[in-house]
């Protein structure tokens, strides 16, 4: 998924080959990750697609099924991966992920700790930020979940950048061999305040911690715990609003007597005669307009950031 392997780097000449991971794009909210295998087929509502037809085609191409339906084949990115990964837990989405990576000040070479791993949605983006020489140590207390995450990182080609550990971070803290090596720590735990003292030991001075919590009571308690060793404690909420774009042919509002504005005061009284004043005129050119989508995610979680105080 990342560009660490130069033979897999995107290019005008890069063709899909056997064994590649592709994102099959039906429409913006319907996608699926598929491992290309010469003898396999993909079946969906558009028909049956033979993988062998895909091999040798460029990424980003349109491919057809036996009945003429089509999908696009895309190269995976962490953003697409977040949309297709199997949800073993509630996951973080792009707005939170992006903000976390930026505020944790992650750059290539950083060491970052994460708990819990969950579905690995954030992990993928953390790995992208610290590649090629940094490392992500991620922990989950759920053995099966950790195993599934490991398999995913293998599949997406991130396993050299990510180590998945099975550990109860709230109960035991981070492993002692990571003391003082972390540039950043990310916590997504039900009781983050239990893990904060250990996180403080792992961080380098001035290193950044982030705790993600859906409830304000958790934030309250975490923030109180943070004050003893941390500074610059700040809590944010970040959301996205998406827009629908449409080309609309607007009725041209032309009144008989001049500017449309001149009619406004009498609008209500003379409703019956309105139609004759506001004539439809289809000669108007179409206009592209945007409106916010009606539904949006209203809350994900609060992001609390803090820096380990420098005491040396």
């Amino acid at each position: 998924m990342l560009l660490t392997d130069s033979t897999k780097k995107l290019s005008f000449n890069r063709k899909i080959s056997d064994g590649d991971l592709v994102i099959v794009y039906e429409k913006h909210d319907t996608m699926k990750a598929v491992k290309v295998s010469e003898k396999s087929v993909l079946e969906n509502r558009f028909g049956v697609f033979k993988h062998s037809d895909w091999i040798g085609k460029p990424f980003g191409c349109k491919v057809s099924s036996h009945k003429g339906g089509f999908v696009y084949l895309l190269a995976p990115t962490p953003e697409l991966w977040t949309l297709v990964l199997s949800h073993r837990t509630q996951i973080l989405y792009i707005a939170d992920i992006s903000f976390v990576v930026m505020y944790l000040e992650l750059i290539p070479g950083c060491v970052v700790l994460e708990s819990g791993t969950g579905s690995g949605s954030l992990t993928t983006s953390l790995a992208r930020a610290i590649a090629p020489m940094g490392h992500v140590y991620t922990f989950d207390f759920h053995e099966q979940r950790a195993e599934a995450a490991r398999a995913d990182f293998e599949k997406t080609g991130l396993s050299s950048l990510v180590t998945v550990g099975v550990r109860d971070i709230q109960g035991e803290g981070f492993p002692k061999d990571l003391v003082g090596v972390a540039d950043a720590v990310f916590l997504d735990l039900p009781q983050p305040w239990l893990a904060i003292p250990s996180a403080g030991e792992m961080l380098k001075p001035d290193g950044v911690l982030c705790s993600f919590s859906p409830c304000i009571e958790q934030v309250q308690r975490s923030s109180e715990t943070l004050t003893s060793k941390f500074t610059d404690i700040r809590t944010f909420e970040v959301l996205l609003r998406t827009y629908e774009v449409r080309e609309v042919k607007m009725d041209q509002c032309q009144s008989e007597e001049g500017t449309p504005g001149s009619h406004r005061p009498s609008k209500r009284k003379h409703r019956a005669s309105e139609a004759s004043h506001w004539q439809q005129d289809s000669s108007g050119s179409p206009v592209v307009m945007a409106r916010p989508s009606s539904e949006a995610r209203g809350h994900t979680g609060y992001l609390t950031f803090a820096r380990l105080r420098c005491v040396e």
Partner: peptide
């Protein structure tokens, strides 16, 4: 997709 982010900070 067109998106517009929204960011709110809290006093805790």
């Amino acid at each position: 997709q067109i998106t517009e982010p929204w960011l709110r900070e809290y006093q805790v």
